[in-house]
Design a protein around this nucleic acid. Structure first.
Lengths: 187, 187
DNA sequence: CTTGAAACAAAAGAGAA
DNA sequence: TTCTCTTTTGTTTCAAG
């Protein structure tokens, strides 16, 4: 059975040179932490009336800067689970191997994220699964498949130290600041 | 169609003892992908009228199962940036070293996430920064501080293969399935 | 769980600065 | 243009059954 879980990666529309002013920044910054804030309240927080805010939002969403919204689910107190990071290397570096591997990523819900990387390994995987046992079964599945794994290292998360940051918008968009004071509030 | 898996009893450090039925699961699953869906629409999608849905949602939010909502920001085409994973080990493993290190995580917006891990390293860091140069400056800051880094490995992301998805709720909450059919409905 | 009503938010338009 | 103001439609929340 192949479940189409869809998109392995949803690239935003290839867009270029969208200009974001300070208010856009603030909007993004607020929404990245309070994704369900009403547009009216958001407008107040950035000193705008609803309509202009609404237009900015639409622009940001259309441009793919805001890719979507999501609820932050905590498994704590809901189900036993472990979180694991894996760095791994493929046996061979032919394009078809990469492709086969990357497609297999989409077929496992337990693999919640995957990045291709440089620096001694080919991929980093973030996995959430029930326990070590089902983690090992997942790895075995990957090993058994046509995907050739040369080696992999397992890092079990013992404690989340810092969770869920938004990208450092102010820092990235405002060249100079060493470590942005994320908030220009006081409007 | 609704698959009846029977209620699952939540457990964890806080021992909440929250019972999640199939509909709660579906609600979580939908909201984790469409975090700004209106409650009215969500109600329709799970065959409920607004009020009971509203009560379930409130219960889930109060219990901390839904921790919050956030907008997914994509910087593609908006700002130059690189994403980096770092595995690192501290020089010494005294409690105060860990504590100092973990506090320093909170002081840098570029460090978007950090996990304590077992397996040869102490931490995994996920970093988003402007370029290699500012990445290196960040590392230097950590090296200069009282936080003693014994060694660290840098993995620059070359391609996001699978973007952070929801935790595999159905899989975690429903014992046996190897790879859950994420959806129990044809609504 | 349903109805239904009052309070509130979203979306779109007319027009002023 | 970009914002404010206004209207219509739809959503949220809660009381009562």
């Amino acid at each position: 059975m192949t479940i189409d879980k869809g998109p392995v990666v949803a690239h935003g529309p290839a867009m270029i040179g969208l200009k974001l002013d300070d208010r856009d920044l603030k909007i993004l910054s607020i929404l990245s932490r309070e994704g369900r804030l009403s547009k009216a309240d958001l407008a107040k927080r950035v000193n705008l009336s609803p309509t202009p805010l609404w237009e900015r939002l639409k622009r940001l969403e259309k441009a793919g800067v805001i890719r979507g919204y999501s609820a932050d689910i905590s498994l704590k107190g809901v189900a036993p689970h472990i979180e694991v990071f894996v760095t791994l290397e493929l046996e061979n570096h032919r394009a078809e191997s990469f492709q086969a591997f990357e497609q297999s990523m989409g077929r496992h819900d337990e693999i919640v994220a995957c990045w291709a990387i440089g620096g001694g390994f080919d991929y980093v995987l973030q996995i959430i699964t029930r326990d070590i046992d089902s983690y090992q079964r997942l790895i075995d599945t990957l090993l058994d498949g046509k995907v050739g794994l040369a080696r992999y290292y397992t890092y079990v998360v013992t404690k989340p130290v810092k969770l869920r940051g938004a990208p450092p918008l102010e820092f990235l968009l405002d060249g100079a600041r060493p470590d942005g004071p994320a908030d220009g509030s006081g409007d």
